[in-house]
Design a protein around this nucleic acid. Structure first.
Lengths: 111, 111
DNA sequence: TATCGTTATATTTGATAAGATATAGCGATA
DNA sequence: TATCGCTATATCTTATCAAATATAACGATA
């Protein structure tokens, strides 16, 4: 039985959370589904929670991350902007590198 | 107004948390105070919470981290073992390095 | 053997976050 | 202008976690 080191990273803007693991997962699901409600359902999350998450993201980011449209053909939808895509990629890269860094650090110590 | 990247790291043993930021802070306070109750008070934490935290730490660590004694002169006390001290040092070093790594990563991206 | 400050533990209360439910509004399309 | 699936928002209930309270036990010392 060995020790494992874990981490959570998040990006803050103006003192409150902008992006974390859960929000990134949601953004990716929206990119795949094209809709907030479908993305929420695919993650087993309530629509309300999904909506308030992306509302928080959009209101704090420097540029829009998700663009929503309401009404019309198909009832509307949501899509990830290119800025949102670069944020998602950046987050996941940093996170992955952080994990491997931490693993190497712990292994080097042999507690 | 700029983005900031933050993180929390923790060490798990057997699938449950062994050491996190709060527990490390408590261990350091115990090392200074020589007593669980005084350490808890110095951190504004209830004795019960402090006790259950260090109980969890001790029951999951490979070697004892805190040694407690009950009764006797002064009523008893608690002290950090040398193994505990190396764990505290290791945790804080890794954490600090993690933070500077994350900062450099975010700055390099300029989102 | 009475005292003291501590560790050790159970129980109850309160606060906070999460979840469920309900409903209003939108606009292209037919 | 009726329909449709979606976004947008409020309200209420429930579950989870933290906090507070109470009490037992311990052992050196005087």
């Amino acid at each position: 039985m060995d020790y494992k080191i874990k981490s959570r990273i998040w990006i803050e803007a103006d003192g409150s959370i902008l992006l974390g693991e859960g929000r990134v997962q949601l953004l990716k699901a929206i990119d795949e589904e094209g809709s907030l409600s479908k993305a929420a359902k695919s993650l087993g999350m309530s629509y309300k929670k999904a909506w308030s998450l992306i509302d928080a993201v959009n209101s704090r980011a420097k540029k829009p991350v998700i663009i929503t449209s309401v009404g019309g053909k198909g009832g509307g939808g949501a899509q990830l902007t290119t800025y949102g895509k670069t944020m998602v990629n950046a987050f996941e890269n940093i996170n992955k590198n952080c994990w491997s860094y931490l693993d190497s650090q712990l292994k080097a110590l042999d507690l």
